[in-house]
């Protein structure tokens, strides 16, 4: 089978991943809802995963895909703990607006 990057080119994947990552950064900065901020972090992780797989195919090496596998495991752990933290924040404060988390401000 012909390599897929012959027809698409690695540049297109780089641009796609960069734009996707920037959308994640934008979401973190723009929204106040903590869950949406969480989802933006997931978007950023996915952009990086996509680029990992693209370069793994580019270099014909399986190790990039192994790294994507590990990063998915870390993302799953992160989501579980983060959502538990959000639930307990919601119980204590009554909202998950990140503008209201000012207890450390002094």
């Amino acid at each position: 089978m012909n390599n897929i990057l012959n027809e698409i080119g690695i540049e297109n994947y780089i641009y796609l991943a960069v734009i996707l990552f920037s959308i994640g950064v934008f979401g973190v900065l723009y929204r106040r809802n903590a869950i949406i901020v969480f989802m933006s972090i997931e978007i950023m992780l996915n952009a990086v995963n996509l680029l990992f797989v693209a370069f793994s195919t580019y270099h014909q090496d399986a190790e990039g895909q192994v790294f994507v596998f590990f990063s998915m495991a870390v993302a799953a752990a992160e989501v579980a703990v983060g959502l538990a933290i959000l639930v307990s924040v919601f119980r204590n404060i009554g909202s998950i607006d990140i503008g209201k988390l000012k207890n450390l401000k002094g």
């Binding site: 089978m1 897929i4 997931e42 996915n46 995963n49 797989v53 693209a54 793994s56 195919t57 895909q65 994507v68 596998f69 998915m72 993302a75 799953a76």
Partner: peptide
């Protein structure tokens, strides 16, 4: 990209 394993894991996990 023909990486079937990651496609399946992506859909199951994410």
């Amino acid at each position: 990209f023909n990486s079937q394993f990651l496609a399946i894991v992506q859909i199951i996990v994410y």
